[in-house]
């Protein structure tokens, strides 16, 4: 797979980028205006048509397709609608680009429906996990004495949990996995020649190192998710023991931040390392080919 990525010319990269941007942007215009069904705690809405970036990320170079999709979302879904969220967009941009990029890297054989299915689900799951982590973090950071408010941490967890499950079912399976399984076999080998690109070879396997770094990122995301949630649960426990003031004093507020900041540091380091590593690999390869 590494070799193929380097075969893209400048204009082919641009083509994949524009293709992904236009298509996912269009889809976003559409979903932005769809109604949401809110039944009690369950909010049923199509937040994005995940099958479009998933399909493109698997058929083409994952990086340019993922990047294009995120840019398309910002430009069509927000900027042109006059709904640009500023910093909030950056958060979604990073989460989504990373999730889709990983989904694209996971697939090595486009004839295997199993691989496509796993990659599609993992992709959407990473996006949802990251956004859950950020949401929980926001509440944490934004409320002064979270532990002092009974019921609040539990409520936030319940809300996030429900939204995670519904998002996985609606965006992940109904509008991600199933359409992707329908579209990819139909498009594979048909759409690439239109851009003058060779179809991604079915049997080419990623080199071990690339796999390791992808796995590292997935595990890091997962660990961060677990860490955040479990620490949040810990806040709840302190909350139950609120009539024991010594307990609070014993641990202090800093205690909560320790594991979570450790997780964050590990996570950031892993990502930076993975990016640097793949960059240096690319540069050595291009030097060789030159």
């Amino acid at each position: 797979m590494g070799m193929q990525r380097n075969e893209y010319t400048q204009s082919q990269k641009m083509m994949v980028f524009i293709l992904s941007m236009s298509l996912f942007g269009l889809a976003n215009l559409f979903t932005e205006l769809l109604p949401e069904f809110t039944i009690g705690p369950v909010e049923l809405s199509i937040s994005y048509l995940a099958f479009i970036p998933l399909t493109l990320v698997m058929l083409f170079n994952p990086w340019y397709a993922a990047f294009g999709a995120s840019v398309g979302e910002i430009i069509f879904g927000d900027l042109l609608l006059g709904d640009f969220g500023g910093l909030g967009e950056l958060e979604g941009f990073i989460e989504f680009t990373m999730a889709m990029y990983i989904a694209g890297l996971l697939v090595t054989n486009l004839n295997s429906r199993k691989q496509i299915a796993i990659a599609a689900i993992v992709g959407v799951m990473i996006d949802q996990m990251l956004s859950t982590v950020v949401d929980v973090g926001k509440v944490w950071f934004g409320i002064e004495e979270l532990e002092a408010v009974p019921g609040l941490p539990a409520s936030i967890l319940a809300i996030e949990g429900v939204s995670f499950v519904t998002e996985m079912v609606i965006s992940g399976v109904l509008f991600g996995l199933i359409p992707a399984l329908y579209l990819i076999p139909k498009l594979y080998g048909k759409i690439e020649p239109l851009l003058g690109i060779e179809p991604r070879e079915g049997r080419v396997k990623a080199s071990m190192t690339e796999w390791v770094s992808v796995r590292f990122v997935i595990i890091a995301v997962f660990l961060m998710f677990v860490a955040m949630i479990s620490e949040f649960m810990a806040t709840m426990d302190i909350n139950f023991a609120v009539w024991e003031p010594e307990f609070l004093e014993q641990f202090g507020e800093g205690y909560i931040w320790l594991p979570i900041s450790a997780a964050a540091v590990i996570f950031v380091t892993v990502v930076i390392a993975a990016v640097k590593f793949s960059k240096s690999r690319n540069s050595t390869k291009s030097r060789k080919s030159a």
């Binding site: 204009s11 641009m14 083509m15 524009i18 293709l19 236009s22 298509l23 269009l26 889809a27 559409f30 048509l49 099958f51 479009i52 399909t55 509008f175 359409p179 329908y182 579209l183 139909k186 498009l187 048909k190 759409i191 239109l194 851009l195 003058g196």
Partner: peptide, 24 residues
């Protein structure tokens, strides 16, 4: 809505190539 993206993707791919080549 989903099926319509099949022809849409192919058409957009063709148009994208024209655009990029014109730009280049």
């Amino acid at each position: 809505v989903i099926k319509a993206f099949y022809p849409m993707m192919l058409n957009t791919a063709k148009r994208t190539r024209t655009t990029v080549e014109a730009l280049e």
